[in-house]
Amino acid sequence: MPYLLISLPAGLIADRVDQRKLMIACDLGRMTLLLSLPLASLAGVLSLAFLHGLILTCGVLTVLFNVAYRSTLPRLLTEHQLVDGNAKLTMSQDLGELVGPSIGGVLIGVLGAARTFFANALAYLTSAVTLWMIRAEPVDRSAGAPEERRPLRAELTEGIVFISRHPILRSLLLCSTTSNFFVMASGAIEVTFMVRELDAPSWLVGVVYSISAVGGLVIGALSRRISERVGSARIIWVAMVAPGPLYLCMPLAQPGWGVLLYGIGLAAFSANIVLYSVAATSYRQRVTPAHMLGRVNASVLWICYGAIPLGSLTGGGLASTLGLRTALWICVLGTWSAALWVFFSPLRTMRNLPESRTVPEPEPEFSGV
């Protein structure tokens, strides 16, 4: 819900305030909220309503943080370092997703579920401290910005308008949204598929997800070299097209060790996510004016993340109606089809990203149906 409700206002806020201070405030806010959970449990006042309110508030702070952090990197790195910098951020996220559940399981066993949230609070405090340690020259956020004050609605939707008039950013948005929709559709049924159709025990399901995470980490470590070899712009559509055949391993998986075919398909998708996301984010950071990067990033999150719950519901509906394996075939082919948006776009004629954060001439507006 928070991505659907406040992404656009979050973008405007990120464009108007010091983004580093905003991220620190979000970290400290989430730390405080998560500390309240074990304290409420110890005091005997923990309830489902309390959890719902805490999750929603944490979600709001997470949206603000994610919009700000996607807009901060260009302040810290040169343009030629953006691809490598985004790759390292993606790798750190994949590593956290790989080891986090294992650490969480151990802590739950030792401390109990509620007390484990003390560790989450410590993690947010660590994040806030490391952000505070960053020393960067402040950016003049008014540079290139319109001087006149405009209606709030116009400022909120400026990111969407900018994307809609930029042919490559528009193609990237459509590609990401299509991919998110079908990936979440398959994600909603994949554990059920492995357990019911493939008779996979829980430990083997864990191995499958580990294979997937390792695939993303390996490609993340090599992403700069791959980008330089293939081309920093060309890699966007290559990353979407090339791994597609391996996605088919997922519905082709069979019981026994054939379950590992599913892991191969997931690993291919993890590699795709790293290469595509790094290059697409770097392109967006290059071509978007600094004064509106927050709103453009927020617009992308609003639409792309808004497709996630719809995809999950669709995956469950397809599985219930057509069966798990048939639904999975539809999902993986739908995921691969997202590549069409970037393959049939101006990116196919480009090798490298533009050298400066200049705004290409937008498409003219037109009237008609």
Rank of each mutant, 00 (worst) to 15 (best):
M31H: 06
T32A: 15
T32Y: 09
L33A: 06
L34T: 02
L37F: 10
A40W: 04
S41A: 12
L42N: 08
L42M: 14
A43S: 10
G44F: 10
G44D: 04
G44E: 08
L46K: 08
L51H: 04
G53H: 06
G53S: 05
L54T: 13
I55P: 13
G59Q: 10
V63T: 02
N66H: 07
N66K: 12
V67S: 05
Y69H: 14
S71V: 00
S71A: 07
T72Q: 11
L77F: 07
L77R: 01
L77A: 00
T78V: 10
T78Q: 09
T78W: 07
H80G: 09
H80K: 12
H80L: 15
L82Y: 09
L82A: 08
L82M: 10
L82D: 03
V83T: 06
G85V: 00
A87M: 02
K88S: 00
L89N: 04
T90V: 14
M91N: 03
Q93N: 14
L95N: 09
E97Q: 15
E97M: 14
E97T: 14
E97N: 15
L98R: 08
V99P: 01
V99A: 08
P101L: 13
P101K: 05
G104F: 15
L107G: 05
I108H: 01
A113W: 12
A113S: 15
R115Y: 09
R115F: 14
T116Q: 08
F117L: 15
F117N: 08
A119E: 05
A121M: 14
L125V: 07
T126K: 07
A128T: 11
V129I: 15
V129E: 08
W132G: 05
I134Q: 07
A136H: 06
A136E: 03
A136S: 12
P138L: 00
V139Q: 03
D140C: 00
A143N: 08
G144W: 03
A145L: 12
